[in-house]
Design a protein around this nucleic acid. Structure first.
Lengths: 201, 201
DNA sequence: TGCATCATGTAATCAGTTACATGATTTT
DNA sequence: AAAATCATGTAACTGATTACATGATGCA
């Protein structure tokens, strides 16, 4: 379970409320770990009751009070211990790849639109990452000598950029493949026997 | 939920038992969707009771009987409908990135070993993918003109190859970054206030 | 007036993981 | 004799998603 650890890292970078954390999980840390506010509130409550986080009630004018969480000493220990444990490379969940293989049993051409839509989403993300990189790390307004924390944030962002670039290039490849197949090449049609066996690499 | 759909695709490619599916989820389709045998058995049972799959009991000599599942007509319809629905790009869960950002509050150098281990795992995977590509799609023993299904399988495999290459290059970048930070650059040490706010891009 | 933002939560459900259990055969 | 492979399953738990709920402020 790394949601707990992602929260610890985020709160060490800057204390904040559940709401603020939920926003961060839509950007920043959310580029490599996602969570909804419901989940975050639940986990925050648990972590606070375990003593790994501290809370401070902050009254505000004109808005609801907020609970600002920060990492307590035991929380630092929890994070440190996790950092020293080996973890397995995260398993991939790639719906689109399932769809592409599934298209062999349907009309491949009908997937083109969907793939284009994904292409668009990833291009947008890449643009956002590059803007962020310029603002925080490589642009003229970025801090001159980056400290350790910033350099680590930057290398993680470079990972996100590399991922989006790779994905965009692959989606181009997918589109080219789908287009050469044309509309009439499908293996499909109701076939209760199942399609012939293919070497599933 | 795409496990159901991944199972449909896999069974359309070739009918098989729960055990066989579990093995395929360790290779092949498992490169972009993972599942354990417990999960698979549960879902197969549900899908069978819903009528989207058919089962056949196959007695064997010297081994336990197996239940060979195949896709029934309603299953094809379920898959087809899903293929025509838009899906959101899958959210990423990247523990290692969380660790790297967390390393700012601990000793960055102690992560080097872990990153090297991941580098190794991804290099192995890449080698396996390339072997599979040669065997099934680009080598001399591969079928000469690839049909639509094979070409779609191939483009998905190319995606896996691109992903592993990108990851390996990024891990090199991470290692270089960790090494320039050295052992003494950590921002850490018990600090109940939390570290100074950083622009979280 | 209606929508977006800020802020927190509950309840129900679904998906996924871990642990446990069985038992024959084949390989080392 | 021990370990790995083939084959299926149950039970308990944890994690994640979806739906519902409230209520104020500020903007168009």
């Amino acid at each position: 379970m790394a949601l707990e650890h992602a929260i610890l890292v985020s709160l060490l970078e800057k204390p904040g409320s559940g709401y603020e954390l939920a926003r961060r999980f839509e950007r920043s840390i959310g580029y490599f770990w996602t969570a909804t506010h419901q989940q975050i509130y639940r986990v925050l409550k648990r972590m606070e009751s375990e003593g790994v986080l501290g809370v401070e009630d902050v009254p505000q004018q004109g808005r609801p009070d907020k609970k600002v969480y920060s990492v307590a000493d035991p929380g630092r220990a929890v994070l440190s211990q996790w950092l020293h444990e080996p973890i397995e490379p995260e398993s991939i969940r790639h719906d689109l790849a399932v769809k592409i293989r599934g298209a062999a049993f349907d009309d491949p051409a009908s997937l083109i639109e969907e793939v284009e839509r994904h292409h668009h989403i990833h291009s947008d993300r890449l643009a956002r990452y590059l803007t962020g990189e310029l603002r925080d790390f490589t642009g003229p307004d970025a801090p001159a000598p980056l400290d350790a924390g910033q350099r680590l944030q930057h290398v993680v962002l470079r990972g996100g950029i590399a991922y989006e670039r790779m994905t965009i290039a692959w989606l181009d490849d997918v589109l080219a493949t789908l287009r050469t197949l044309g509309t009439t090449t499908g293996v499909a049609g109701p076939d209760p026997q199942g399609a012939p066996a293919r070497p599933s690499a």
